[in-house]
Computed example of a mutant assay.
Amino acid sequence: MDDFGYHTIWDITGADARLLKDAPALHDFFLSTLQRSRFTVLDHLTHKFNAGGEGVTGLYLLSESHLSYHTYPESHYISIDVYTCGSNNLSINEGIRGFFGGDVKVKSRTLLRGSNVVVTTEVENETCQ
C-alpha cells in the first residue's frame, strides 16, 4: 500500500462568532463537504464548550485518514486540519469561503507526507506557550 498523503491546514479569520458556536451547523457543513468530496466518513464526533468562548471541536475519522477543526468564536477564528492518504484533499476548499462568509481571510498550507517524500527543509519542533 502506498503511504503517500496530503496534510492541509486552513487558518480562517474574520468568521461570524455565532457560526463558530453553532455545533450542528458546523457538523452538517463538514459532513456534507466530505461526502461531496467523495471521502469515506467512518465516524465523527463534536464537542461544544460551554465556557471560555463557547467554541466547538470536531473530528471526522475517514477511511482516508481524518479531518479535525477547532473554533475560537471570541477571536473569530477556526483552524481546520485534513490529512488524506492517496487522494488530494483540496476539494474541501470548495465551499469554505461561502460557508464562513465572503469577508473571511483564508490561509492554507499543504505538506506532502509519506516514506518516500523528500524534505528539503527541516524545522525543529517548537512548543506552544
Rank of each mutant, 00 (worst) to 15 (best):
D3T: 08
D3G: 08
F4Q: 13
G5D: 08
G5R: 05
H7Q: 11
W10L: 04
I12N: 00
I12R: 00
T13P: 05
G14E: 03
G14P: 03
G14R: 02
A15D: 02
A17D: 07
L19K: 05
K21Q: 15
H27F: 10
H27W: 07
Q35H: 07
R36F: 03
R36I: 02
R38M: 07
R38Q: 14
F39A: 02
F39S: 01
T40W: 06
D43I: 04
H44M: 06
H44P: 00
H44I: 03
H47S: 10
H47E: 13
K48G: 10
K48H: 15
F49S: 07
F49W: 15
A51M: 12
G52K: 09
G52C: 09
G52H: 11
G52D: 09
G53I: 06
G55A: 06
V56G: 02
T57A: 14
G58N: 05
G58C: 08
L59G: 06
L61T: 10
L62H: 01
E64Q: 14
L67S: 02
S68H: 07
S68Y: 06
Y69N: 03
T71G: 04
P73W: 01
E74G: 09
S75K: 11
S75F: 09
H76T: 10
I80N: 00
V82G: 02
T84H: 03
C85V: 15
S87W: 06
N88V: 07
N89M: 03
L90D: 04
S91P: 03
N93P: 00
N93Y: 01
G95C: 00
G98M: 02
F100H: 00
G101K: 04
G102W: 05
G102M: 03
D103V: 06
V106F: 02
K107H: 11
S108F: 14
R109T: 12
R109Y: 11
L111A: 12
L111V: 08
L111C: 11
L112K: 13
L112P: 06
S115I: 08
V118C: 09
V119K: 15
T120D: 13
E122W: 13
E122N: 14
E124D: 15
E124Q: 15
N125W: 08
E126H: 11
T127R: 12
C128K: 13
C128H: 11
